[in-house]
Design a protein around this nucleic acid. Structure first.
Length: 569
RNA sequence: CGGGGUGUAGCCCAGCGGUAGGGCGCCUGCUUUGGGAGCAGGAGGUCGGGAGUUCGAUUCUCCCCACCCCGACCA
């Protein structure tokens, strides 16, 4: 490709609205163009990268036994009513009417359609298992699109769906997909974290997320430094050091004037925060829930939601808390009636806690569970934190931010039961098909790759997904020799099947060309200039090399092939 | 949905109650070519939209819209 013919322009200034590196750099390098909030055009170079990622995904999906198909984005709402997911997605789903007034939606994902397709085509255990996949545009009306291509409303996504006769078979498909995912990210040149994940309201027993570690990621991953334990913070478990059990004390009021926070309480009474009880008040599916947890820990709302089997969970506001008889700063499960009480496991580990007394400026000391208050539910609802201990090996846990680029789920029979996708087993018994689903956000993966791979000068594309392999600059192209050598080299490289972006601009200064090359970030830069040609040489430099080298004109092709081969490893 | 911010040329921005400016980019010509060059000439704007105040509004007031950031949200 000739730079002079490219439709996209690089921007001299950083776009002021773009905060995250990938958003800023993709706009500056002319990879994407914003159309609306969370809606982008992919310019030719970004599309080339996207296609490369897609083709790696296709190869690995096919190798894992997947069959590609294409399904409509435009779907009847009725289909989503059958599974109840119209309501579940709510405002996140784009909905529209056709000319007859029929209700249609733009699909945020395709379980309904693919399950119906399988229902029509699979009747026997002999037809199973199946893995079907698609790479297509999906739509979600995100409450807040952000960070360029990281969270958008229209996006390119690979989704695979497995259909199995039983759990063992589902396990095999799930395992095959997990391995394919590892292959995909490795082949893209992207180190990925595979983390245990919350399976959500519909998910079955297993779920894993694939994340690229970046400081700007939306997800937090808890990892163990010494074993393989890796889990999304929403899901992660941790071992909390046991407290020494003391001789049980009596419940006794203690004056705590003006004390409203755990930190102030612990300081005032000169005890560790772990000797206090924290009280948090939630509304779960419209019903008030009182939660108590040790003062040094935080509530994990995902775990809480799961423990309550709730679909909607939020913190209660001050008014709701007051009307339930709670006193801000001194709230307590002790003496509470008529409210569901959830007690974190940590509260059963330790005794003689300092707890609120539901009276202003007064706390209890010597609070003990279950002597002094009851629980409707006791469960692990605490947020795993770095510094706590690994539930598998007991070593210290760490925390990393990451961007979720893939997610795999065992779905079970939710969709097949709602939509009647059954099969007959060898005994002639009818069963709903077991399902799994496996997604990769392709556009998001591109953004995450840029987010993870850049420096102060621009993008540093991993070679497998770079739009071109070579960025060739001709300096002083009006010089006849430069012109002829560069043109010939361009032809030779292309004939050798090497992808070249050839900066043939006549009017751009050397500095402009160098800066654009750094900004776009292709793996290898060649410079043809009068200075090097004097010695019969061409300059060659890897994007991450600090120094450039030079090679004789006749050896350029071989050198380039060698460098690219070493990058492919 | 709450909080904050921004809308002026392709991009980044300044400005002001009297009808709009700079830098970059773009076009023409000349000069120039190793890290965002120089000279000369030129094109390009319903100042986000609507209403109001005013002799006059890009500027003041109100309403709306769009976009960005934080939070809520993200099967």
């Amino acid at each position: 490709m000739r730079f002079s013919r490219m439709v996209s322009k690089t921007l001299r200034d950083d776009p002021p609205d773009a905060e995250t590196a990938s958003h800023r750099l993709m706009l500056r390098a002319g990879l994407i163009h914003q159309v609306a909030a969370g809606v982008y055009s992919y310019l030719p170079m970004a599309l080339r990268s996207l296609r490369k990622i897609e083709s790696i995904i296709r190869e690995e999906m096919d190798a894992a036994g997947g069959q590609e198909l294409m399904m409509p984005a435009l779907q009847p709402q009725e289909l989503w009513d059958q599974t109840g997911r119209k309501k579940a997605f709510g405002d996140n789903m784009f909905a529209l009417n056709d000319r007859h007034g029929r209700n249609l939606v733009l699909a945020p994902t395709h379980e309904e359609v693919v399950t119906n397709l399988v229902k029509a085509n699979v009747q026997s255990y002999r037809d199973l298992p199946q893995i079907l996949y698609q790479i297509q545009t999906k739509f979600r009306d995100e409450a807040r699109p952000r960070a360029g291509l990281v969270r958008v409303r229209e996006f390119d996504m690979k989704d695979a769906y497995s259909f199995n006769a039983d759990e063992d078979s589902l396990d095999e498909s799930y395992q095959a997909m997990a391995e394919a995912y590892q292959n995909i990210f490795r082949r893209c040149g992207l180190p990925v974290l595979m983390a245990e994940a919350d399976s959500g309201a519909i998910g079955g027993k297993d779920s894993h997320e694939f994340l690229l570690a970046t400081d700007t990621g939306e997800d937090t991953v808890i990892t163990c430094e010494s074993c393989s334990y890796t889990a999304n913070a929403e899901k992660a478990a941790s071992t909390i050091p046991k407290l020494l059990s003391e001789q049980e004390q009596c419940l006794e009021e203690v004056a705590t004037p003006g004390i409203k926070t755990i930190a102030a309480l612990a300081k005032f009474l000169t005890v560790h925060e772990s000797k206090t009880l924290k009280a948090v008040f939630y509304i779960a599916d419209g019903e008030p829930v009182f939660v108590t947890i040790r003062g040094d820990l935080e509530v994990n709302e995902t775990k809480l939601k799961n423990a309550l089997h709730a679909t909607d969970l939020r913190m209660a506001d001050g008014e709701e808390a007051r009307s339930a008889g709670l006193v801000a700063g001194s709230a307590s499960p002790i003496g509470l009636n008529d409210i569901k009480i959830v007690v974190d496991l940590s509260v059963t580990n330790g005794n003689n806690f300092i707890a609120g007394a539901n009276k202003p400026d007064v706390h209890y000391k010597g609070a003990n569970y279950p002597r002094d208050f009851e629980a409707d539910t006791v469960a692990d609802i605490s947020l795993a934190q770095p510094g706590q201990l690994c539930p598998l090996c007991g070593q210290t846990l760490e925390s990393t931010k990451g961007i979720e680029v893939g997610h795999i789920f065992k779905l079970g029979t939710f969709f097949s039961e709602s939509l009647g996708a059954d099969f007959l087993d060898a005994e002639g018994q009818q069963h709903p098909v077991m399902m799994g689903c496996y997604g990769i956000g392709v556009g998001r993966l591109l953004a995450a790759a840029v987010e993870q791979n850049n420096d102060e000068n621009g993008i540093v594309f991993p070679a497998p997904i770079a739009p071109y392999q070579i960025h060739m600059i001709a300096l002083n192209i009006n010089n006849n020799e430069v012109f002829e050598v560069a043109e010939k080299l361009y032809r030779d490289l292309e004939l050798a099947g090497i992808e070249v972006l050839f900066d043939d601009r006549e009017d751009a200064a050397a500095g402009v060309k160098f800066n654009d090359a750094d900004l776009i970030g292709l793996p290898v830069r060649l410079v043809v200039s009068p200075r090097n040609l004097k010695d019969g040489k061409v300059e060659i430099k890897g994007r991450t090399d600090s120094e450039s080298g030079s090679v004789a004109l006749d050896d350029v092709l071989v050198s380039v092939q060698e460098v690219l081969a070493s990058l492919a490893k």
